[in-house]
Design a protein around this nucleic acid. Sequence first.
RNA 1: GCGCCUCUAGCUCAACGGUAGAGCAACGGACUCUUAAUCCGCAGGUUGGGGGUUCGAAUCCCCCGGGGCGCACCA
Length: 478
Amino acid sequence: MADRPVPPQVPYRFERTHAAAEVVARWGGIEAGTETGETVAVAGRVGLSRPQGRVGFAELRDWTGSVQLFALDGTTADFAGFSKLRLGDWIGARGEVMKTRRGELSVRVSEWVLLAEARRGFGDKWRGVTNPEIRYRHREVDLWANPQARRVAQLRVLLLRRLRERLWERGFDEVETPMLHAIPGGALARPFVTHHNALDIDLYLRIAPELYLKRLVVGGLERVFEVGRVFRNEGISHQHNPEFTLLELYQAYADYRDLMVLVEELVSGLALDLLGTTEIVVDGGRIDLAPPWRRATMTELITESAGIKVDVHSPLEDLRRHLRAVGAPEPPAEWGAGKLLLELYEKTTERELSGPVFVTDWPVEVSPLARRHRDDPDLVERFEPVIAGREIGNAFSELVDPDEQRARFVDQARQRAAGDEEAMILDEDYLWALEQGLPPTAGLGLGVDRLVMLLAGVDNIREVIAFPTLRPGRDELT
RNA sequence: GCGCCUCUAGCUCAACGGUAGAGCAACGGACUCUUAAUCCGCAGGUUGGGGGUUCGAAUCCCCCGGGGCGCACCA
């Protein structure tokens, strides 16, 4: 760290007239060695700087891109100071747009001002920062030093914007529901616990917004969605962060088939918005997201990928035998055909599915909020969209019958008593709401982080979350 | 949670039982169209922390901490 004096006066604002990308877009085509007579003011961080005696060059980088600054002793104010700018310093600069003899579009700086200094280094100017610990703990460094990190962040920003726009276009209203739940519900997961002092009660960070969103549908909001964080107290992996962003939406008068159409249009549309193509590359393989996606039942897919002919009506012992044959650990004795079938699917099939495919018709035992299948009472009308072996969401025709919902909750309570900590807890307020009448409704959850991962072509969820959950570090990295 | 790997200058990496180094950054200087500019000079470290083995430890062993990967759990 240098003993450079703190700038005596950093201005409170800077009047920027053009982003770097705007300068490039407007004047990028001019001839080498020409001047435009147009003055602009740009601002950003100094990238590579090449002071060279009585002339100097520096890359000015902002969120949109970069443009070269060209300084000359005699015409650039405080030329000596300009020559001493360091990698990462923020400056604002005013000058004429021109192109150097070598053909580099530049702003010939007449005046400039230091907006903030970078007292700390920003890593190797060529290789950036690759140490994952620094990249995740100090994302601000990563974002500046590594173009890939910037690209992913920009992709995520754009995805969230276009996602909302596409839902608004379809008549969905964005709403907000509580994050602090007295009863954690809407998903099978273990919650984080917290405490409210004034009420002196434990509260849970939500594991899903589902039950509240459906209560809004009961209240008459026919198409709602929420994009927000949910929290699940489970292990961390390259596919899992304890807090992650979920899109949930509910559409009255629709069933799960309608949502399949919605999902394939939404996801392929977002791919077009962000990438200009529906084709993505995952693990070196190409996957086309253009509709229509294949629809196949869970049992069909198990048979297809593992050669095992079973379904939810198969004898328990058959299902257990197949699980043993694929090397799965012995499941608990109380598991029914539904859980066993799902286990078999996850062990043998899910990972093999390149997709995109809608895996449909799930066992009722593992779907306590979904409506029974119109053709088979042991199944529900549910699907998960799978791309590259990864579930990116979950959707179903919603269970609307309060009596049956109560029975499902009671069944969950039984599983919970048997030791399943992820089983749901009976929620009287939710049942009360159902008794007011939930119209036929279809609901969807989409993992936003996983969607960003697919479209950005990264295989670690930490790459798409600006500040992923880490153990608190010691002070040596500060 | 369990297993394996990893931690050396601000960053990226060498040195793998025998005097801790390089490139970049930083700092001082030269240079009037550069593109990872070039050139000269200078400085930079309890080798993640602690303990042990050894004449001698960045290097071998043990404990602790951070991180990565795999498994398990889930979206």
